[in-house]
Simulated scan of single mutants.
Amino acid sequence: MLDQAKLKNIQAEMAQKKQKQKGASMIEYALVVAAVVGIASYFFSADNSTGISKALNDKMTSVANKINS
């Protein structure tokens, strides 16, 4: 059986590993958020000549023209 000193040592090691994993997951989440923001800023940029922003602009212009006709 495990004595109390070994048990406390194992518990301390597990707590350290858990803390390291928590820090690593926060970094991973931050990288994912940064990637999503970068992709979104590319597609919804002020330049309406490419991407989703052009498609949205074209569709809204088409709808506005149909309403005004």
Rank of each mutant, 00 (worst) to 15 (best):
N48W: 02
I27N: 11
S49G: 09
D58L: 05
A35S: 06
Q16I: 02
F43G: 08
N65Y: 07
Y29S: 14
A12Y: 03
S45R: 15
I27R: 14
N48G: 08
G23D: 04
E28M: 15
E13Y: 13
T61R: 13
G51F: 07
G38A: 11
K18G: 15
S53D: 00
V33G: 09
N68T: 07
D3P: 00
I67D: 01
G51T: 09
E28D: 11
A34M: 15
V63R: 12
D3N: 08
K18V: 15
F43T: 08
N65K: 15
S41C: 11
G51M: 02
N9Y: 02
A35V: 01
S69N: 05
T50I: 10
L2V: 06
M1P: 00
I67F: 09
A34E: 09
N57L: 11
Q11C: 07
D58K: 14
K20A: 03
V36D: 08
G23V: 11
M1I: 09
S25V: 14
A64Q: 06
I27W: 08
K54G: 04
K59S: 04
D58G: 06
S45Q: 12
K59N: 00
M60Y: 07
S69L: 05
S41E: 12
K6V: 05
V32T: 07
A64C: 03
Q21D: 04
K22I: 13
I10M: 03
D47H: 10
Q19K: 06
Q16T: 07
D3Q: 03
I52Q: 04
Q21W: 05
L56Y: 01
G23H: 05
V63I: 14
A12F: 03
K59F: 00
A5L: 10
M60S: 08
M26N: 12
A46Q: 09
M60C: 06
K59T: 06
Y42L: 08
G51Y: 02
S49E: 02
S49N: 07
